[in-house]
Every structure is written in C-alpha cells, then in structure tokens.
Nucleic acid binder design. Structure first.
Lengths: 200, 200, 200, 200
DNA sequence: GATGAATGAGCCTTCATTCAT
DNA sequence: TATGAATGAAGGCTCATTCAT
C-alpha cells in the first residue's frame, strides 16, 4: 500500500505542473524560482524534485503536456478536411489560434527552449517534429492527388510556413499588435498556393 | 580637456566592443561575464561601465554594429539588380549568407535579444525594421512595374520570408545540418513567386 | 506477537548492515545516503530507522560488527604463541593484515569515526579498547616472565605501536604505496624490542 | 596605484585567515560557514572568494601558515642540540608541545585534512613532509656518528614516532586526559633508544 | 580617467528524518 | 511492520554593480 493514493500523487503532479506553468508564463524560466512554484502548488521545495528531475525538467514537462494537447487539436482540424487548400488553411488557422489561446506557452517555448542546447534530442523536439510533420503529410498526399506540384520541397515549405507564422505571431505574443487569425490564414494560404507574381 | 584623447577613447570603445562580441558569441549572454570581457579588452572591470551602461547595453551595442554592417551589404546586393525576381533572390541569398558568415551573432540576436522585453522600442529593433523593410520596398516597386500582383500583402510576405529563413537557418546555427545558400535561395524564390499548387 | 518473524527481522537487519557497509566503504559516510542503502538492501528509506537510530548509528553498527570479527582473530593469533617476541610479532602482523583485507573499513573508522566527538564513550570505543588491550596483556605477562623490563609503560607502548601502524598503513589505505606485512612486522618488532641505539 | 594599499590588502588577508582559524577551530570545517567567517573578519561573504579560492582553500591556508610556524620552531629546538638522544628528546618534546599550544589546529589537521583526498599532492602535504623529515635527518646523522645502528629504517622510525605521538596526543586533543610533555618525551625517547626487552 | 576591491543579493539542490497511510 | 511521500533547513558560490582611491 503506497503512502499516498495514486489519485493524490496525480493531483500533486498536476498541481506542480500547473504552478510551474503559471510561474514560467509570468516570469520566464530564469525569473521563476522553485520556491515560488512550490508555494503556489502548496508543497515544499524539496518535493518538487521527487516529481521532476530539476527546474529544467519541470519546464519540459509543462511544454510536453502543451504539445500533446495541440497536436491532437491540429490533427482533428486538418484531417477533417479533404481538399489540400482547405487542409492547409485549417492548419494555418489552427496554428495561429494556438498563439492566441496559449500565448504564454508559445513565448515560453520560443524564448526559453527552442534555442537551448538541451532541446536537441529532447522529447519536446520529438513532439515538435510530430506537430510540423502534419504539414509534410498533407503536402505529400496532395502531390499524389495532383493538387500540388511534384517538384515542391515539403521540408522547405514546412520551414517557410512555420517560420512565417512564428515570425508574424511574435509581435502579438509580445503584446504589440493583434493577430487576425481568419484573415491571415486566408491570405497566407493564397500566397503560398498561388505565389506572388503575376506571370510565371 | 579630457584626460585621454578622443582617439584613445575610441580605441578603448572598440576594444571593449570586440571583446564583448567574442565573449558573447562564444558563451552566450549569460555565460559571458564582465570580468572576462574586461580581461580580453585589457581594461579593468569598472571601466566597462564608463563606456556602456551595463552588460545588456554592451550586448545591444554589439548587435547594433552588426546590423549596420549587414544593412549596407544587403542594400548593395539587392539594389544592384533590376528585375524583381533577381532582387528577391539576391535578398534571400544575402540574408542566408549572413547566417553562414556570422553564425554566432545571429544566434545571439535570436536567442538572447529578439524575445526579450527590452527589445521593444530599442535601437536594435529599429535596425531590424530597416533591414527587413528592404523587402517591402522592392515588393512595392514590383507592384508598380506589374511584376507582382497588387493584392499581395507586403508585410505578410516580409514575415513569411524572414520567418522562413530564420526557421531553416536555425538548424544550421545550432550546428546540425548545413545551409545550401544558392540552392535554397533559388528554391525559395520559386516557391514564393510561383506558389506551390498546380492550377490556380 | 510480532508482525514478522524474528528470523525475517534478523535477515532485514543483516541486509541493511551489509548494504550500509558497502555504501559507506565505497562513498564514505557523507557520500552515502540512506536512500542508497535502502535501495541496496531492498527496503524503504523509513524502515532503516526502525532498525537503526539514524545514519550514524548504522555506521557504528557496521564498525561494531567489524571489530567483533577482528578481535577474535587477533586473540587467536596472539595467544597461539608463548614467547613475548613471537606474540608481539603475531600481533603486529595480524593488525597489519587487517589493513590489507579490510582496507575500506579501516579507512572508514579512521577517517569518519575515530576523530569524531561521538566516538567518546561509544560501543566502538569500548571495542577498540578491548582490541588494543591485547597488547597490554601480553606486555604485563612478559614483565612477569622477565622478558620485558619492568619499567616499561604498557600504555605508552600501546600508543606507540598502534599509532605507528596506523601511520604507516595510512599511505596504503589511501592507495599509494604498498604494505609489506611480514617484513614490516619483523622490523617493527625488532625496533621496539631492541631499540635503535648502538650502546645503552 | 591600486584601489587599496598593499598594507590594507595584507590586513584583510590576515583578518580573514584569523577569522577562519577561529571558526574552523571552534566548529570544524563543516561546522563553520563562510558567512560566519566573513562576519568575524568584518568583510562581505563574497570578498572571501577574492582572497581565497574557496572554503577549502581557506582551510589549507590556515594550516599552511601553522606549519610554517611550527617547522621553524622544531628546527630551532632540535638543531640546538648535538647528541642524538638530546635531539630526539627535543623533537618529541617540541612536537608534544604543539598539541598543547595549538590543540585546535592539530585536531583540524588530523580530522579534516590528513584523511581527505585533496591532501595528496597539496602544499600542506609538502609542509608535513618537511616537518617529519627533520627526524629522518637527525637519524641519518646519528648513524654516521655511530650513535644509531646502521640497520635502522629511518622511515619506519618516522612512522613509529609521529604515529605514536599523534595517537597518544589524540586523547588530549579531544579533551580527555592530560599530556605530560616532559615525562612522555623522556619515556618515549628511552623506549625507542633502548627497546623494551630485558635481554637481546 | 582608470582601477579593482568590495558588496551582497539570489538560487538550486540534497538529504536526513518524520509521519500519514 | 512497512512504506515512501513530504518536509524544510542549510549553504556555497557567482557576478553585476558601486565607489573609494
């Protein structure tokens, strides 16, 4: 018989994760302290280290959970459509929406993790790969159906799309300007599918 | 009458800046210490605070100087061409080249400054604006000459292009993969000018 | 009626003691943790505190058991001889052998216990007293038989002998140099019995 | 011109060293904290790290200074005599006196340094070597003059003597029993020079 | 102007021990 | 009896910044 019930352990785990999410979101990784997180979660400092390897592991767990959630959402939205253009626009829209609904977590990932050395080979990187591979899959499908030209480089497109969105969402994430989700999704879809030049 | 000549002051300034550039490039902002920078520049710790407000100001000065240099290079390359496609490809190629020639400074900017709160309203941000506005200018010119469709959103294109390049250069900056400058410039130009779809 | 059989309790006790012996020997007292000992003994952390007062008590129990073993061995060897010189050499040889066969436990005792304040009045100290009193006994016997001068101070001799051996064994215990047991026993016996000076 | 005078630096250095000596002596190495030492020396915590590498370095510096002092004293006393027995007795007496006059430093060295891994190859070890080599020197001299038998192993004698003294002084150092310096010096000298046996 | 000594706040982590289950 | 979750104190060290010289 364990000293505490599995339910309570799970509650603790969730409480710590939630506290960390809030603290990291509000103050960033460096700015937040284990002591603060423990206080919010109403646990002792040391207990955090029983549930998570260290402060960094806590950050990764927060983002892991985040990615699990948005990955399911993305797949649901994208594969609910059949035509490539609809799928692409759905992907763009959904991805933009994440920046609106989870602004702090997005900033956290971009600012504190994606550029760090321990990102390489991490579980977060694997989640990111799965997330962006949704685009690669729909492009490959569309090449088969003839909707997309066969000489298109899917990985370049992936970089273009996710790089572009991150770039334009960054202003919003940092509290300046707004993010017109539907309109941007339409425009970006058109730009990528049709190109910007008059004649070709 | 100053105690030291203006020339010597400038030398000092340059020496500190150069030392900071090296230290920040090698160890990142947090990893570098004022003591180390002072040692490289062969000055005392305290003197650094006479030339720069604080460690952060030193970082900004390093990147300011960097931006001044690459801005001139970009304009030279881009406006040396006449046709829009050539200008676009030149811009992309030049921007990619910067990631190759100044890898550390690019990582520095992306990882340590662009996501920070003090970037907003800073001189660095202004330099970044000037740098990316080169693209906006050539697009507007091309709309006038009929090379680019008039319904293209220049700012969206700017985000797409610079976001895309940053995204694909990030792998290279972090030491994994290589950066095929010429080929990527060609492919990306084609993707943006022609679009990815077969019919439109 | 106990919840577990006395046999099982004894097994537990022995398992913990053995685990502690290994952990302390490998990492020293500070370096070893209760958690590690519990893991080796396949018990929980808390259970260790039912069998031993605390970490320190565990260490003392380990050394207590050790002393019980070497005390019997020493008496067997020493009192198997009749002449004083033979007894003395046997004692020295046996004592030196312990440093070779139980190097880690010797270091543990010397480094972590003998200099500590809680050694005073402890059961370990009592064991040590019994161990060293073997020398005192054979000296007193030898004074009666006329083998040893009656003005010899047995306690001073005890300090000289055990201090000397510890001093010369310390190098060996710490991994530098070797310990020539038989030769050292002979030389040391001669030095103490005959003295170092030519005339007297 | 330095920011503070060399005299003031030396004063600081001495103050820290003295504070450390007191703190270590009273509470042992672990028991003393940098904060406490800094408070006694009336400096800030951080400043201690400018004068000494770390807490361990501080301890070594304290003992280094101690050894320098007692080495000079020992040589003065020992080489003030001519005959071997007088020299030996002077060495023993002087060494015993150190345990009386600098009890805490002796305990510090024995308990906290001599058994530690960083002692090996340290400056302290070198000082210790010089200190004990005084005995080796007088023995070799005495072999030449015929006072000591030529088959005596000087290094074994060194271990016997210093090991013996440490052993018998340990009780005193730990506050139990007293240390009869003159009497012990006489007895020990006799024991070592004449041996303990009646006939040989 | 230049120095570098001095400051002191700040933070992660470990681990012996307790106690609810 | 046994578990192991929970506690929480404790401390060395770094480093940006200031200021006396």
């Amino acid at each position: 018989m364990p000293a505490i019930s599995p339910e309570r352990m799970q509650d603790r785990y969730d409480a710590i994760l939630d506290a960390a999410k809030r603290a990291f979101a509000e103050r960033g990784f460096e700015g937040a302290s284990i002591a603060e997180i423990a206080r919010i979660a109403q646990i002792s400092d040391g207990l955090a280290y029983r549930y998570f390897r260290n402060k960094r592991g806590l950050l990764f767990a927060v983002l892991q959970k985040f990615y699990e959630r948005i990955l399911v959402d993305l797949e649901t939205q994208v594969f609910g459509k059949n035509r490539f253009r609809d799928r692409l626009e759905a992907l763009i829209r959904r991805h933009l929406e994440v920046f609106v609904s989870d602004t702090d977590l997005c900033r956290l990932f971009i600012a504190e993790v994606r550029g760090a050395s321990d990102y390489e080979g991490s579980a977060i990187q694997e989640m990111n790969r799965r997330y962006t591979s949704v685009l690669v899959r729909i492009v490959k499908d569309a090449v088969k159906t003839g909707e997309v030209r066969s000489d298109v480089n899917p990985k370049l497109l992936r970089d273009v799309l996710f790089g572009a969105i991150e770039h334009l969402a960054w202003r919003y994430v940092n509290g300046r300007g707004q993010l017109r989700v539907a309109q941007t999704a339409r425009e970006l879809t058109a730009m990528l599918t049709n190109g910007i030049c008059v004649d070709r």
